[in-house]
């Protein structure tokens, strides 16, 4: 389990990194935290001709409260998000999800952007990004472009990034008013990828009905699944167990779970529905207590 040889580049700036990426055509990979890429290289499942190491690109590691969104540099360590009071204030869903992301030693090195770009269907952070309607700022030769979460997560282990592009930052738009969050997953062991998971955000309007409802399932399809139809059906309704059950049932109607060593497709579907119900109830309880 030793990696094949490669050329190593350690750019100091994003333009330099983009130029180096172009220099090697499609044969180079950028390395962020490397917590997925390095083992793949050790197993020789990945064998890039060159590695462009983003760890020295200071402009990619930041976390700041902007005018209308929290802006997170792609190279921000997951541990930094976990410890950020700013995130706690504006995007607490991260703090519910991050303890489930592997282990602190991995989060110390693993980056937010790296997890999003890998887009493992059972990963927590893409689901959080989807639930928070994150916007992805992508840097390329001709400048930046921004895509939404629905556009960014393009399919199994793939994203909207072109081979010569690098994710610069993620914007998490503020959610005005008081929101409730819910997050739950079932994994084989603490820190494992989810067999199935769900995340929810709810907000009540002045009339006591929901004026914001988001529900995301993960581990049950080729990426995070935003349950748009279920969300729409909850808007304008008053919180109730029946509402959560209906929303959960609607959410799993649109998923295509697969079987693997650890769980059958049927199991994933059943549990996704249960967890959807639970995260909605959890988010609603926060509203009530909040």
């Amino acid at each position: 389990m030793k990696p094949a040889a490669f050329v190593y580049r350690a750019p100091a700036s994003l333009p330099e990194a983009l130029a180096q990426l172009r220099e090697f055509g499609g044969d180079a990979r950028v390395i962020a935290g490397g917590q997925t890429l390095v083992p793949a290289m050790s197993m020789r499942l990945a064998r890039p001709a060159a590695l462009i190491d983003l760890n020295g690109v200071a402009e990619l590691a930041f976390l700041r409260a902007g005018a209308d969104a929290i802006e997170i540099g792609a190279m921000t360590r997951q541990r930094t998000l976990e410890r950020s009071a700013e995130i706690g204030r504006h995007a607490r869903l991260f703090h519910l999800a991050l303890p489930h992301v592997a282990h602190f030693q991995i989060r110390n090195r693993g980056t937010f952007g790296g997890s999003l770009c890998h887009n493992d269907p059972a990963a927590e952070l893409p689901a959080v990004a989807a639930a928070l309607s994150a916007e992805f700022v992508i840097a390329g030769a001709s400048g930046d472009r921004t895509v939404g979460a629905d556009g960014f997560f393009a399919g199994l282990l793939s994203t909207a990034l072109e081979p010569d592009e690098i994710l610069r930052a993620i914007r998490i738009p503020y959610l005005p008013g008081s929101c409730g969050f819910g997050f739950a997953e079932v994994a084989r062991r603490h820190g494992d990828f989810a067999l199935a998971g769900a995340a929810a955000v709810l907000r009540l309007g002045g009339d006591g009905t929901l004026d914001l409802a988001r529900l995301v399932l993960f581990g049950v399809d080729d990426g995070p699944v935003r349950a748009h139809a279920a969300e729409a059906a909850m808007l304008g309704e008053r919180p109730s167990d029946d509402l959560w059950s209906a929303a959960a049932a609607a959410a799993v109607a649109g998923i295509s779970p697969v079987a693997d060593l650890h769980a059958s497709a049927l199991y994933r579907r059943e549990v996704a529905e249960t967890l959807a119900r639970r995260v909605l109830r959890q988010a609603a309880a926060e509203l009530r207590d909040g």
């Binding site: 079932v186 067999l195 650890h262 769980a263 059958s264 199991y267 059943e270 549990v271």
Partner: peptide, 8 residues
Amino acid sequence: AGPDAVRA
């Protein structure tokens, strides 16, 4: 073998 087996 895990929660799936329990459900099954």
